[in-house]
Design a protein around this nucleic acid. Sequence first.
DNA 1: TACGCGTGGTA
DNA 2: TTACCAAGCGT
Length: 335
Amino acid sequence: MTANCAARLLEHYVDNFRRLPWRSPPGEPPPDPYRVWLSEVMLQQTTVAAVTPRFERFVARWPTVEALANAPAEQVLSEWAGLGYYARARNLIACAREVAGRGGFPSTAAELRSLPGIGNYTAAAVASIAFGQDEAAVDTNVNRVVARLHAISQSTRQLTEQLVLAMVPPGRAADFTQAMMDLGATICRPRAPQCGACPLRQDCAAFASGTPDLFPARKPKRVRPKRHGTAWWIERNRCVWLVRRPIKGLLGGMAALPGSGWSEQPVRADVGALGTVRHVFTHFALSLTVVRGTRPIGEGWWQRLDTLAEAGLPTLYRRAAQVAISSSSDQRDAA
DNA sequence: TACGCGTGGTA
DNA sequence: TTACCAAGCGT
């Protein structure tokens, strides 16, 4: 059953091949391991649409892992700004330096797994796609496809990897890995799966059940608390005062506006506030009030307003800056 | 094992 | 508007 299953999946993949900047078409030599690794890290919890233009910029700026390894960390973090999950960028730098130091990427999943920012999934993806190793790359797409194929409500990583490995056609792991993810992304979707177009439906226990979308079982959602804080907009001579956040924790190592901590209590209404930004993080929602300040706070630097876009502000602070700038221009217009 | 960790698109 | 969700990893 599994052999025929994989063969139909590969045929479907070849017929519906999606050309992406980090992919080689079926039958052609594999992409540069650097490009595979970089794309896989960028794609962690991030959509293809969001990654594509950022990947192109990134490889144009640093075409090789050696180039990336020699880049200053602040420049890499700045290039990552807006992509989110900034620990990925910090681990990317550490990984690039380790790989460059050892003269290239290792080719086995076990060795890749030991590098910073490379977990089970990414190790198997790089090993299979870049090095042709028969490894089981289980991401959320593959997990869903397998859960439905076998009508398993709650699987374990170990069991899923075992089931996938049994499906991998020897020597075809590169295409197979991508075929499974494409299937999950386009047909075996979380909601409203397109079973009528699925090459695996004749083998699919969830399809047979009549309610394929119930697999795998959803996790109960957690309530998202609200937090409040203040950021200071300190402007002088067409420059604004920026700081760098502590390397650990939320937005770690990123450029930022100086500000207060974030608490459960709303900030008291500030008459002079330039505006408020509401921003939703994974585990809480933040209401950030932007207030004009007069003198620099803490260690930082003056960033020219006409180069603010290149400062590498994460989205929260990019939006806070927009609020401050548009508020200032409104005041000028009113005067 | 469960939580901390960003952001933007979609229904 | 709200809720869900996206090629996960580190601790």
